[in-house]
Design a protein around this nucleic acid. Structure first.
Lengths: 151, 151
DNA sequence: CTTGACTCTGTACCTAGGTACGGAGTGTAG
DNA sequence: CTACACTCCGTACCTAGGTACAGAGTCAAG
């Protein structure tokens, strides 16, 4: 084991696949805690590596840094705040589920688009992406979308 | 019908539920086309309302303005570029599907978290969100995550 | 005990996606 | 034909999430 090799900011950055400046930025934003310092140098733990990786993962899935910060704070709170933690998690779960539905509708619209408008055999010039997404993101069908503007 | 009432920038903005400045911004970015002008005033079509709504919808689902611009350009291109359009759509579909999987994994992790760590009966103090997301985002189980840093 | 890689702090700068403002012209109801 | 809402253009400013210095100190191999 290499317990003797300290995890400096550069080591952490490389392990989490981010820039050194990003780590410092996260610290300024209080997303990760200020680590212990020896001779002015930051020394991190393996926990910190896991945390930064988690931050990047959550970010990739659409969480903002503020949301991530909040999640991480939950994680450190003691048992009396469990009901708050639970409620926040459940709210977030609902939000993500909604987002998943919208993404699924987007995939469907794009599939219709590429199977009709994108197909040289089937396509008509009046078949547009716009139509594919309208009518509650459901169809592209004839290529003529109904008038939705109430004209 | 009110064909005689022109769709000015303010009308468009209200219809699409965005600010007037946002419309101007989209035009600067060439996300929507420069409309015809009479006496210096922009006059939009119902198509423009649909387009701006689509832009906001796509944005909400995680598309950047550059991606949206590209999609809208597909939409206006003529038949000889159909294969390109189709390929781009298919690529985008794959990207979105990946994102959906990740979001589903996130939901699972959050559900495990709220059912264990968030539950006052079951929770142990060493049960953390970090653990819930690790091991390929699959479990929180005992509350002690395996060491993933290769130490 | 020097040299080069690494780290420190603070501040400035960058892109994306808007938002606000100033000073001028337009359009329309009374 | 005046008032007021609306629009014009250009430019400046804002937040989020970084990224890049500069000038100084530290660490470790040779």
């Amino acid at each position: 084991m290499n317990e003797n090799k300290p995890i400096t900011i550069g080591v952490l950055a490389k392990a989490a696949n981010v820039g050194v400046e990003t780590i410092r930025f996260y610290q300024r934003k209080a997303i990760i805690e200020q680590p212990l310092k020896t001779n002015g140098y930051r020394h991190y733990s393996n926990e910190d590596i896991r945390t930064v990786r988690l931050v990047k993962k959550l970010q990739g899935v659409g969480f903002s840094l503020d949301e991530i910060k909040e999640l991480l704070i939950f994680d450190h709170c003691c048992s009396e705040s469990r009901s708050v933690v639970k409620q926040k998690s459940l709210t977030k779960i609902e939000e993500i589920k909604t987002q998943i539905s919208e993404l699924q509708a987007t995939v469907e619209a794009l599939e219709v688009f590429s199977n009709t408008c994108g197909s040289s055999e089937i396509a008509e010039t009046n078949c547009h992406l716009l139509d594919c997404f309208e009518n509650h993101w459901q169809c592209c069908s004839t290529g003529n979308a109904p008038n939705l503007t109430g004209e």
